[in-house]
Design a protein around this nucleic acid. Structure first.
Lengths: 172, 172
DNA sequence: TGGAATCCCAACAAGTTTAGTCGGAATTCT
DNA sequence: AGAATTCCGACTAAACTTGTTGGGATTCCA
């Protein structure tokens, strides 16, 4: 896997959570439906949902009419929450992960590169945590009604997504 | 390898380039010396240098008294330049890589997640390109003379690194 | 001119990770 | 009872990572 390239776990997971956000408040959504809509293997998605459940992001109900639901409002779940569960914590290098840096690298104290990785880590977490599932849903709705939800810059514009006024967001 | 975790290629490569920056202007630096100082396998480093040479970041001279040199001033080579060569381009997903997005994913046009990955990509490139090899050298010198080069926030402070006045930096 | 120092190149390999598949057990609704 | 679900663990083929190995080509210096 390439540096900064999401694996299918992260990508499918975000899509699945987005799918649940779209049906938030309608009761449990069976995995089969999500898998079909998002076009991913149901069995594989099962494994991802297990992680998200253990992390407390979704609840499940078994049996007929069962399925998965978000435990919180889509506005209170960020892309960062999901990605960190499925891809692991955002740590460009071991020396900026949880735990004692010197344990990971004996030169950690005097190493300037460590500051670079730290800066990168913070920046990525900030971006990922600035976008909630609700932002995703809103932006998609805007994309559908207009070529770009927030301006006229075309399909590559990222001006929406957590920057629109009134959008709920986690404050760290 | 984890999402956003650098492989040894990126880490060793940056260290090697930092080593060359430290000796910039002193003629070719033999790989053996760099490998010993940075404590990495010489033969492995050889492979990484090949990539950096092909990318035009270093030149090599063969034979006795040969070695590698930076092709530009340390102020004109960013961490981003190095990392992109050794780890590949920064593309959180295929749909934000070079080339036609719709080729990578047929839903690319209508997909809001794509905007998230785009935003992430831009942010990472921005951070990585804001720090030059010269910044690294300067910051290390400051770290050595003072507990933190730029302030008193202790070893986790990242306030230096491309933010100090007078530091040369690429303007895109 | 000979040899030492160096870069250059290609092949190989063990271990790990990824992206799933497969089969079945447990639970719950109707 | 039967159908729809989640839950769990084992398995696997392919790719990637992190080097190692071996040898060839070039250049400097004594």
């Amino acid at each position: 896997m390439r540096f900064v390239r999401l694996s299918t776990r992260g990508k499918y997971g975000v899509r699945a959570m987005y799918d649940l956000a779209l049906h938030y408040g309608e009761g449990p959504v069976p995995l089969k439906a999500t898998a079909e809509r998002q076009m991913v293997s149901e069995h594989y998605l099962e494994q991802l949902m297990a992680g998200l459940r253990r992390a407390g992001l979704v609840t499940s109900s078994r049996g007929a009419q069962g399925g998965y639901e978000l435990t919180r409002s889509p506005a209170d779940i960020t892309i960062g929450d999901i990605v960190r569960v499925l891809e692991g914590p955002i740590d460009p290098a071991e020396c900026v992960a949880e735990g004692d840096p010197v344990e990971a690298c004996e030169r950690a104290d005097e190493c300037t590169m460590r500051l670079v990785w730290k800066k990168l880590k913070d920046c990525i977490n900030r971006v990922l945590d600035s976008i909630s599932l609700k932002d995703l849903c809103d932006e998609t709705a805007a994309l559908m009604s207009d070529s770009c939800g927030s301006c006229r810059a075309g399909p590559d514009c990222t001006r929406g997504l957590g920057e629109r006024a009134g959008t709920a967001r986690r404050t760290p």
